[in-house]
């Protein structure tokens, strides 16, 4: 697979996982995702953004809190 396609797939996963877990109110699994991605850096995005997977969780949580009030 092309490296750019791999990075796009990783970016999609890194965004989709926290958003879906927050939507389905699976905060405990999201906490585990934070713990794992702290030490496994596969899902750190490097295309379009340069944000670690944990930071994307923070952004998703920020948006959820901001728009759910």
């Amino acid at each position: 697979m092309d490296d750019n396609l791999k990075q796009i797939a990783i970016l999609f996963t890194a965004f989709a996982v926290p958003i879906l877990l927050l939507l389905f109110k699976q905060q405990r699994i999201l906490l585990a995702w934070v713990g794992v991605t702290l030490l496994v850096h596969i899902f750190d995005t490097s295309i379009y953004t340069n944000l670690a997977a944990g930071r994307l969780v923070g952004l998703a949580f920020f948006c959820q809190v901001r728009f759910s009030r």
């Binding site: 906490l31 944000l51 944990g54 930071r55 994307l56 969780v57 923070g58 920020f62």
Partner: peptide, 16 residues
């Protein structure tokens, strides 16, 4: 953006 996301992540973890 990094600062906001870090702060939000800290809030999420603390909340959990």
């Amino acid at each position: 953006v990094r600062l906001i996301s870090d702060f939000s992540l800290a809030l999420f973890v603390a909340d959990q």
